[in-house]
Amino acid sequence: MNGFLSKMKLIIFFIYIPFVYSASHAFITTYTEINGQTIAGIPEFSAVTTLDGRQIDYYDSEIKMLIPKQDWMKEFISGDRFKEYTEIRERVQQTNKINITVLMQQFSHSHGVHTYQRMYGCGWDDETGASEGFDQHGYDGEDYVALDVKQLRYITAVQQGVITTNKWNNDRAQLEFLKQYYQHECVNWLQHFLKLRKVDLERAPEVSLLQKGPSSPVVCHATSFYPSEVTITWLKNGQEHHEDVDLGEVLPNEDGTFQKTSSLNIPPDEWEKNQFVCEVQHQGRTFRKTVDEIKNNTKSVHCCGFIEAVIRLVLPVLVGVATVNILVYDITSY
């Protein structure tokens, strides 16, 4: 929470989240309420949902609509639940107006611009089946209270949060409800959205051989594939070749697909004496590229291919952090 909320002091709505592939998935909802004189164009209340660090919906107090941010969310928005979640955000918007007023009183703030933020959700590992929930609240970029889901109790790092934690910890029915939500319902929704995303994104890799110049390494670049599991192998005269090979990590593309590279650094005469092939395996299919298909800067028709590929490799994923409220029971009241 410290890293997340400290950034909120400078940037409220757009926060960089590094997206690193793993078997773990995260489903996060964030509400942000601003009190006082706000900047033009920045709404008083906003809510965003993210799945694995990528925004999937958005709501704020100005547009007053829940907007899907991914094409694969179209199936979800066609159902009755989408309307229900829009109404939930409207209710939370009204509740948070009260919450931030109470917080200002607790911190002895009578005027000025102040922020209240709640971030909650769950993580799930599709290999081990392990899951973990979290529910954190912050005020003016600092920790306020947080729910220890394992111990099933709220904790606070500040004196002003003691009244709230005492009140919430005495509501055992609410705590049991949250336990069930984070252990089951939240994970079920996470898995549901993963299935919707997979159907939409499942794609075969686009494979290219890229080279800056005759003496430069040859990069086998596989991109635009989903799911992320992929194998890249260099073959020398039909046999697997592992020397002078630099295998890159799986990286995300902006559209939710993935990319990976494998570079082969050998002298030009080795290319002339032997037959090298890059072999990419994905979802039971095999894709091959030979030396005759190398794109390099000496060929004008391919002058920009390598540069574009490099840019895509280093381009960070910048996502808007917002809220996903699948939690129907509102616990933000003081």
Rank of each mutant, 00 (worst) to 15 (best):
R118L: 02
I15F: 09
S263I: 06
T86Y: 04
K236Q: 11
T223L: 02
A130M: 04
I88S: 05
L264M: 08
I15K: 07
V149L: 00
I28H: 06
T29M: 00
N170Y: 06
F258M: 03
Y31Q: 09
M119I: 05
L201R: 09
Q106N: 10
G133Q: 04
V102L: 04
V207P: 13
W72F: 15
I11M: 08
M65R: 14
I232S: 08
P217D: 05
E90Y: 10
G248C: 01
Y21G: 08
Y16D: 06
I34A: 04
Q283K: 15
M65H: 15
G138W: 05
S216W: 14
A173R: 08
Q275E: 14
E44R: 14
E243W: 04
D80V: 06
C304L: 13
N237L: 08
E229D: 12
L66V: 02
L247M: 04
T29V: 00
L327D: 05
T115V: 01
E176V: 01
T298D: 13
G238W: 11
E90S: 11
S224K: 14
Q70F: 10
I232R: 13
Y59I: 01
T156W: 08
E75H: 13
E206N: 10
D125Q: 06
L10Y: 14
G141T: 01
C186L: 00
H302T: 06
Q259C: 09
V92S: 12
H192T: 15
I155S: 02
L201S: 07
S208F: 15
F276C: 05
Y120H: 13
D292K: 09
V321I: 11
S131W: 05
G133H: 09
K195C: 04
P252N: 03
H241E: 12
R153T: 03
F276M: 03
F14G: 13
F306Y: 13
E90N: 07
D60Y: 11
N99H: 10
V20L: 10
M1R: 07
A222C: 10
N296F: 12
S61T: 03
M65V: 06
I155G: 01
I326S: 12
V328I: 14
V199K: 15
D57Q: 13
G121L: 00
I34L: 11
N325I: 01
A309M: 08
Y85P: 01
